[in-house]
Amino acid sequence: MKTVSLDGAVVPFAEGQTVMECALAANISIPHLCFLPGFLPHGSCRLCTVKIDGRLASACTQPAMAGQHVEIDTEELRQVRLSLLRMLFVEGNHYCPACEKSGSCRLQKAAYDEGMLDLHYRPWYPKRKMDASHPDVLIDRDRCIFCELCVKASRDVDGKNIFGISGRGIDTHLVVNSKSGLLADTDISAQDRAVEVCPVGAILVKGRGFEIPIGKRLYD
């Protein structure tokens, strides 16, 4: 059986598995955001950055190879993760007290887990277009972290191919596949996997208002 070393633990892996997959199978946690089992990983958030034989790599895309020495929980990598989370917070508008997703948000949870207390950088306060055109679903683009999970879920699970990513650099943004560019002109439904899969409060179901009391939410 081929094995890799994850923070010193010798872990077996099957051919074709990524470092993330073999860590999950061994119940070793590697913080992650854009990775979700069942979806093709692409390594955009970089939160799962680990050090493999001295080089930084995203665990979700890196194939496991025999004899690899993988570092996860080191001071250097904690600093990298903390910086990445702060970057995700400053480039968007993440006002948790005013966000319906608060308490069930994977970005927020990841930041709690890493002990993020401050932004460190200066917030950018972007002004991206909100899309409230659809009766049941809304998009708040200022909260999008470009994980592309909705893109993949809508295309591969829902079979609707409603979302895409456009723009470049800091102007990267979520777009909708309709002539008007509006959600109202798509066949999205509040039950779509693409809606549910959003890790943050960028795609929300309308008509709900902080239904679950604080203390009872997913990550409280």
Binding site: F89, N93, Y95, P97, A98, L117, D118, L119, P123, Y125
Partner: peptide, 12 residues
Amino acid sequence: AINGGIPAMRNH
């Protein structure tokens, strides 16, 4: 104090 909070929503 940390990120501007609710008052910072006027930045939009």
